[in-house]
C-alpha cells in the first residue's frame, strides 16, 4: 500500500493506519533531528512532535510533493524551532572520540576494516547541515529540488552544499582514518 492510500485511510478516520507511516519514516525523521541535536532524547522528542504535527495537518498535505518531502520539511522546521528554544545538551562528537571508537582497544578486527562503520562515524564529524544534506540525498531518496524545499534553499545552493559536504567528508576520512582507508584499499 502506498503512502497516499494510507493517508486516505487516515483521513477517513482510520487512525491506526497512521502507525504504518510512522514505521516507514521514523528513521528519516529521527536521523534529521539527531543530526542537529546530537542527543537521542531530544531527537526522539522532536521526532514525536513531528509526527503529531503531521497527523494534525494531514488534511493540508496537498499531494503535489512526496509525503516524505512534506514530512522532512516539518522535521526540519520543528528541529530548528526546538534549537531556538532549547540549548543542545551535547556538543558535536569529538574527532578523537570517534577515532577511538573506531580503532580503540578491544575492537573487532573486522569492524576496524569496515567502511560501513567508518562512513557512519565520520558523518558525525560534519556540521549538522552537511550531514543532513548527505542523509537526505543518499538515504531519504530526495532529489536536489526536494532537498531545496526541505531546507529552504535553491537547487543550485543545494548542489553546491552537497558537493562541499562530500568534499569535507572525504577530507575528514583522509585526516582521521588514513590508515584504515589504506587497509581497505589494499
Amino acid at each position: 500500500m502506498d503512502d497516499i492510500e494510507i493517508i486516505n485511510q487516515v483521513l477517513q478516520g482510520d487512525q491506526q493506519s497512521f502507525e504504518e507511516l510512522i514505521k516507514r519514516y521514523q528513521h528519516f525523521v529521527f536521523t534529521i533531528a539527531l543530526r542537529y541535536t546530537r542527543n537521542r532524547e531530544d531527537a526522539e522528542e522532536i521526532a514525536q512532535d513531528v509526527f503529531v504535527k503531521a497527523y494534525r495537518s494531514l488534511a493540508d498535505f496537498r499531494r503535489d510533493a512526496k509525503f516524505s518531502t512534506w514530512l522532512c520539511t516539518i522535521a526540519m522546521n520543528t528541529t530548528k524551532t526546538f534549537l531556538r528554544k532549547v540549548k543542545p545538551r551535547m556538543d558535536p562528537l569529538d574527532p578523537g572520540t570517534v577515532h577511538a571508537q573506531h580503532t580503540g582497544n578491544g575492537a573487532d578486527p573486522t569492524e576496524k576494516r569496515s567502511t560501513h562503520l567508518l562512513v557512519n562515524h565520520v558523518i558525525g564529524l560534519l556540521s549538522a547541515d552537511d550531514a543532513t544534506i548527505i542523509t537526505l540525498f543518499y538515504k531519504a531518496e530526495q532529489s536536489i529540488e526536494e532537498i531545496g524545499v526541505i531546507m529552504g534553499l535553491t537547487s543550485n545552493a543545494v548542489k553546491v552544499k552537497l558537493h562541499r559536504a562530500r568534499l569535507r567528508l572525504k577530507e575528514k576520512l583522509e585526516l582521521y582514518f588514513a590508515d584504515e582507508i589504506k587497509e581497505i584499499l589494499n
Binding site: Q15, Q16, F18, E19, I22, K23, Q26, H27, F28, F30, T31, L34, R40, A43, E44, A47, Q48, F51, V52, Y55, R56, T115, H116, L118, V119, N120, I123, I134, T135, Y138, K139, R166, L169
Partner: peptide
C-alpha cells in the same frame, strides 16, 4: 560508500507506540 554504507539512526523500539499514544 555513501550510497551503500550510510545508515539511518533508529529511534527507540516503542517509538511508534508512543506517537500513536500522543495522537490518540
Amino acid at each position: 560508500h555513501l550510497r551503500e554504507d550510510l545508515e539511518l539512526s533508529p529511534p527507540s523500539p516503542d517509538f511508534s507506540k508512543k506517537v500513536m499514544g500522543a495522537i490518540a
